[in-house]
């Protein structure tokens, strides 16, 4: 049975590589930097999607980190037991449990109009859908991953260490900043990495909210609020329509890139955590 796992992973990799071969051969490495994606003209460049993926993921990450750290510190240190913390913990688990499609659907009908109003106020094209909306929803979706790992890590801080600091007259804040944070720093960083891995591969909610435009925005406001596309969303949107080999295989090459990036990020994250928990 364990061998089956190896077969699956090797099979996934092999399938992705063979099927993206036509694109790798004819487009070469320049594919990654090509700025134009125009299937009708048979021109393929992945740059807009790489940027879109990185942009949405990092914005989401920046928004989510204060929340997941706060939850981790609150449930790990301030209030680890009792009904209030149980409720909060269940709420966080629930956030992770709600399917991505529901976030996307809700986003279209509730978040998008709100963002549209905001966009009218600050003077950008009021589309509503775009990088900003997608990142907001993505941020909510990835908070639980960083948070639940953070709770476990903070609870693992040996209490003699904390008591030592308290005995020297440190305040709670100082204990958190000078004892807990340094002790858990690498582990919390791994949590951020794992959230990033989630964000990069998230498909449905982003596909529904990002606006699906393969053009590259020029101004800052447009970059942030304008429509875009991520690697995952372009695959979801265009895979079924891809009617010739190069088009299809260019999309699969995106999948291959996505696979490799998430694998690397996940393995680094897991490695850090394993080392942390073994110490």
């Amino acid at each position: 049975m364990s061998i089956l796992l190896l077969v699956i992973i090797v099979g996934v990799l092999a399938t992705l590589i063979t099927e993206s071969m036509p694109s790798i051969k004819s487009l070469g490495i320049g594919y990654l930097w090509g700025k134009v994606w125009d299937p009708i003209q048979n021109i393929y460049g992945a740059y807009p999607f790489l940027i879109g993926t990185l942009l949405t993921s990092f914005i989401a990450l920046i928004i989510s980190v204060p929340f997941s750290y706060a939850i981790a510190i609150y449930l790990g240190e301030y209030n680890p037991k009792g009904w209030l913390s149980d409720t909060l913990k269940n709420a966080v688990e629930l956030i992770a449990a709600v399917p991505s499609i529901i976030y996307g659907f809700w986003g279209i009908f509730v978040l998008v109009p709100l963002v549209r109003t905001l966009e009218m106020k600050i003077g950008v094209l009021p589309l509503g859908v775009g990088v900003f909306s997608a990142s907001l929803v993505l941020a909510v979706m990835i908070i639980p991953y960083g948070a639940s790992l953070g709770i476990t890590l903070i609870r693992m801080v040996p209490s003699p260490l904390k008591e030592g600091a308290y005995a020297l007259g440190a305040t709670r804040f100082e204990v958190i900043r000078n004892v807990i944070m340094p002790y858990t720093r690498t582990g919390l960083f791994a949590g951020v990495l794992l959230s990033l891995g989630r964000a990069l591969g998230e498909t449905m909610a982003v596909t529904m909210l990002i606006g699906n435009s393969s053009a590259i925005a020029s101004t800052f406001k447009e970059v942030l609020f304008g429509p875009g596309n991520t690697m995952a969303s372009v695959i979801a949107n265009e895979f079924a329509e891809a009617d010739h080999t190069l088009y299809l295989s260019a999309l699969i090459e995106l999948g291959l890139a996505l696979f490799l990036v998430t694998v690397v990020i996940n393995l680094i994250g897991k490695r850090i955590i394993t080392r942390f928990t073994n110490n």
Binding site: I3, G201, A232, L258, I265, N266
Partner: peptide, 28 residues
């Protein structure tokens, strides 16, 4: 050794974006 590599595979599988699973099963 086998346990180590299959453990690694579980980690990888856990992180694989669902859309990639879709593509692969399409071809399989």
């Amino acid at each position: 050794k086998l346990a180590y590599y299959s453990g690694l595979c579980v980690d990888i599988l856990q992180g694989v974006p669902s859309i990639v699973v879709g593509i692969v099963v399409y071809f399989w």
